[in-house]
């Protein structure tokens, strides 16, 4: 059983890591977190289903189109919920409320369009494989493989392209980045798109395992946040490690202690890390400028 729990834990941990990376991208560029991130995850899934069912698009096209719309929704969020409050007061945390509101709107729109029933989502692969003493769904392995590829791609983008370096530059010092001719507005837009895409893809990956409905994202926001904070907000390695820790701990607790406690693990980690080490495992302590 242990092996199965570990595989499940790593796979789910990878999903939390993707959501956590999404938190990081907007935290880098805007110092904000999107409290509607789980709803972006849900939006990509339900939009794919909608395009497939009602427009009769084949799945691959429906999915690509859904991701494009989700990315566009990321840009809308910046324009409607973030820019106005930051313009009014750059220090304010009003974006917590406005992005949350945006998420509730998205969720309720989804309920209006899709109802509250659960929709099946096609698996990438059917069947199971025998790994030592565990029977593992192929879908799980596929999800894991795709997550690894995505994390690697994310790393390549951030560390091996000039655009990625520019994102880091804007994150580090916006004015210095502008002094190099980097258009920080454009970078901010890019980070919103990345956030939406990371969440959306995470949603598409888990949709076959959990079945799709308008409330599928809510818990993911919290767990992705736990992953990001556990690893240290702003640290991509931290988000991945944090995601894996939360994912594995969840499966072990759910498997060996009580399935009902599974979803509490993220909160407990969040609580403990905020008391013990608010900057997270990989975060740097930042002194406030006086």
């Amino acid at each position: 059983m242990l092996l199965l729990f570990l595989i499940l834990g790593i796979t789910w941990g990878g999903i939390y890591a993707l959501v956590g990376l999404g938190f990081n991208t907007t935290f880098w560029t805007l110092r904000i977190l999107n409290f509607a991130q789980g709803e972006y995850l849900m939006a990509a899934v339900l939009l794919s289903i909608g395009f497939n069912r009602w427009v009769n698009l084949p799945w691959p096209i429906a999915i690509v189109l859904a991701l494009a719309v989700t990315a566009a929704l990321g840009l809308v969020l910046e324009r409607v919920a973030i820019r106005p409050v930051l313009q009014h007061d750059p220090r304010s945390h009003s974006w917590v409320v406005t992005t949350l509101g945006a998420g509730i709107v998205l969720q309720n729109l989804a309920v209006l369009l899709f109802g509250t029933s659960e929709y099946p989502f096609p698996k990438l692969m059917e069947g199971v494989v025998q790994l030592l003493d565990a029977r593992v769904e192929k879908q799980l392995l596929a999800v894991f493989a795709i997550t690894v590829v995505l994390v690697v791609l994310f790393d390549i983008f951030v560390n091996r392209t000039l655009m990625g370096k520019a994102i880091k530059a804007v994150a580090f010092d916006r004015m210095a980045a502008e002094a190099q001719g980097i258009n920080s507005r454009g970078i901010v837009m890019l980070s919103m798109i990345l956030m939406a895409l990371l969440a959306g893809i995470a949603g598409l990956l888990i949709a076959p395992m959990v079945s799709a409905h308008p409330y599928m994202g809510t818990l993911m926001t919290v767990k992705g946040f736990s992953a990001a904070v556990l690893g240290g907000l702003g640290s991509p390695v931290g988000a991945i490690v944090g995601g894996l820790v939360v994912g594995i701990a969840e499966q072990l607790v759910g498997g060996y202690i009580n399935p009902g406690l599974k979803d509490a693990i993220g909160l407990i980690f969040l609580f403990v890390i905020l008391i013990a080490r608010p900057q997270g495992l990989f975060g740097k302590k930042v002194a406030e400028r006086v």
């Binding site: 000039l162 880091k168 190099q180």
Partner: peptide, 19 residues
């Protein structure tokens, strides 16, 4: 100076040629 402290010297220089 405002160099990008979390990136390498070469990366800093390459960003200088961003435009």
């Amino acid at each position: 100076r405002k160099i990008f402290g979390d990136q390498t010297v070469i990366d800093n220089l390459m960003l200088g040629a961003y435009t």
